[in-house]
Design a protein around this nucleic acid. Structure first.
Lengths: 355, 355
DNA sequence: CTGTTAGCGCTTTCAT
DNA sequence: ATGAAAGCGCTAACAG
């Protein structure tokens, strides 16, 4: 294992000064073709890996990064994404990054538009986007592209956009997995209840739909004959939920298990608990505080996690490495899908070890 | 958000020079009581967080770290642990660490003793231990303790030792989880086959036993009435395995599912495949290459992963931070237990994003 | 266009 | 016992 190669080593090999090598590495211009080729030759031979921490030490450049996601509620999904972003910033503490967080109301497209307009006023170096409204976001990304500002998606991605990268879980596969799990633990002839969130307006949540598609795909691929019953759920008028649930379950019913494709299933589990509905397996997504509580209490059987901290952290790290070194970026990045149960949820805390 | 506090800031507040602050921070001695208390006062007030990357830049001290584990086979469990350790070393590239890897034959206590004797000759700054033989390891750790050399366990820990820390999964809980999973997918009145590895000598694998205990605990807690049938498995005489398996399954049998508590289950799955035994759910541990293959092919239904890369990486990071800053260390560290299925195994590749 | 120099935060060395 | 100064690898500012 040889000594690490430094800029000084390269400059000596190429017969130029360290300053010139630096200029070449960072495309700062003011370099003769001769010098460029000489250094290029050396770079081909040696495996130079710049040390970003030390770069940061002398890098005067300040970067402005905008983060835009739905509003952050404590203990919920988006908070984890933001934690991950913070974690990356701590790891790259030597790079001077100003983080501007702009959140919008995910149930209100006007709020989103307003926030996006504000973002477009900012002369940002990069943007991390957690999207909800496709049309609005498309307008944003088009504008960013015109300005040459790179952007990265977290949580989900979108057609017709050209992000620098995206970090999401495979929502379709998530639904597919949920179908496999629920069908493996309920009787073959029972029905499956699907909880769906009532939304105002025509924007249906992208990720839930993808999961639903994956779910359906599994059922038809495996020729499963379970009937599906929809269970409405309202965030706006929570008092209705109990009524709906009662209606469905206090009659004769054949529901063997329930799945939910959005992250609010813990609340449905509460609703079941209140109405004395036990022994119905529930499978859901996201490790929000209410969901985890329901998992621990035994109301939810499986939760699928999509590593939000990891998504946020990877997005920010990727953006930083791109901004500082123009490091080539892999566009499609699918994070792991975690299956959590009551038995192992206690060990599910990432990033709590050292920092 | 205020500017980060530096040593220079502290020295100015305490009315001493940066050199003195450094001496205090690192317990290098040659400091008057007056200076120590003055700086101590300031440190209490401000939240100084040293920057280990920059420290490394000027740190002349070289550290020698010994890694000792069972021999590493490609695609197997211990390789992942070593990958994780490498990953941590890359992240802390500025710290000069010489890594001495000493592996032993995990089926041969004499090999282990020999390796440990060699290790004791080394004047190491720290040791990372993946243990197999308890008695031998106890002798090693006693000696290390006498010499004041800190050591960290990965994969499993041991009573009567005083490691700086250990990073393992909760094996008991792992077995408990496996019991929950298998019983939720097999008929109530069917038997469960348990594959066990035949070992030479009286050393039974610690981790497998713990898993077995957890498994049994679940069955009795939940009053499960499944009968358990043992299926021997030999690494030494693989030709016997087919015979045993045939014997068990070609008679009338009532085995609804099989679990294995060691990492070699993929081979048993192969054995099943060769003998035309399908449709028997198998649950196992560890994401070795053969296991993953069997999972993808549908021969294994669930694999439990214990984040070996993470274990290795955390162990090394912890050791480094302790060596450089005497950072206080949390002793007991349980990593996550991952439940993997065919559907999501493709997304299970850690550390593949940026490095 | 290019080499030299100073300086980032930290540790180490060298005077004092 | 302590402050001042040099230097780690890198980038930025300056002088040519």
């Amino acid at each position: 294992m040889q000594r690490k190669i430094r800029i000084k080593d390269i400059s000596e090999m190429a017969g130029v000064s360290p300053g010139t090598v630096d200029r070449i590495l960072h495309n700062r211009g003011n370099v003769s073709e001769t010098a460029r080729t000489a250094v290029g030759e050396v770079l081909k031979k040696v495996n130079y890996k710049p040390n970003i921490h030390i770069s940061g030490l002398s890098l005067k450049r300040k970067y402005k990064v905008v983060i835009t996601t739905p509003s952050v509620t404590e203990g919920e999904y988006w908070e984890s994404i933001h934690f991950g972003i913070q974690h990356a910033l701590e790891e790259y503490e030597n790079i001077r990054i100003k983080c501007l967080v702009h959140t919008y109301n995910e149930f209100d497209v006007y709020s989103c538009r307003e926030v996006y307009d504000r973002i477009l006023q900012i002369d940002a170096d990069g943007v991390i986007i957690g999207l909800t409204f496709k049309e609005e976001t498309l307008r944003l990304t088009r504008n960013l592209e015109e300005k040459g500002i790179p952007y990265i998606f977290v949580d989900s991605t979108m057609e017709n956009a050209s992000p620098l990268a995206f970090f999401t879980s495979d929502h379709y596969r998530c639904g597919y997995l949920m179908a496999r799990l629920i069908t493996s633990i309920i009787p073959q002839d029972s029905d499956i209840g699907i909880s769906y969130a009532i939304r105002i307006g025509d924007e249906s949540a992208n990720t839930s739909t993808l999961r639903q598609n994956g779910f359906n795909a599994y059922l038809s691929e495996k020729k499963k004959t379970h009937k599906v019953q929809l269970i409405p759920y309202s965030t706006m008028e929570p008092e209705k939920n109990d009524v709906w649930v009662k209606e469905l379950f206090h009659h004769q019913h054949n529901i063997g298990g329930v799945v939910f494709f959005n992250s609010r299933g813990g609340l449905l589990a509460d609703c079941f608990a209140r109405n004395g509905i036990n022994n119905i397996p529930i499978i859901g997504v996201d490790l929000t505080v209410p969901n985890i509580k329901a998992l621990k209490n035994g109301y939810i059987d499986f939760l699928i996690g999509q590593e939000p901290e990891h998504q946020g952290s990877l997005a920010m790290k990727t953006l930083i490495e791109y901004l500082v070194y123009r490091r080539p970026v892999k566009v499609q990045n699918y994070v792991q899908l975690d299956i959590l149960t009551k038995e192992i949820i206690d060990y599910y805390n990432q990033f709590n070890y050292l920092s």
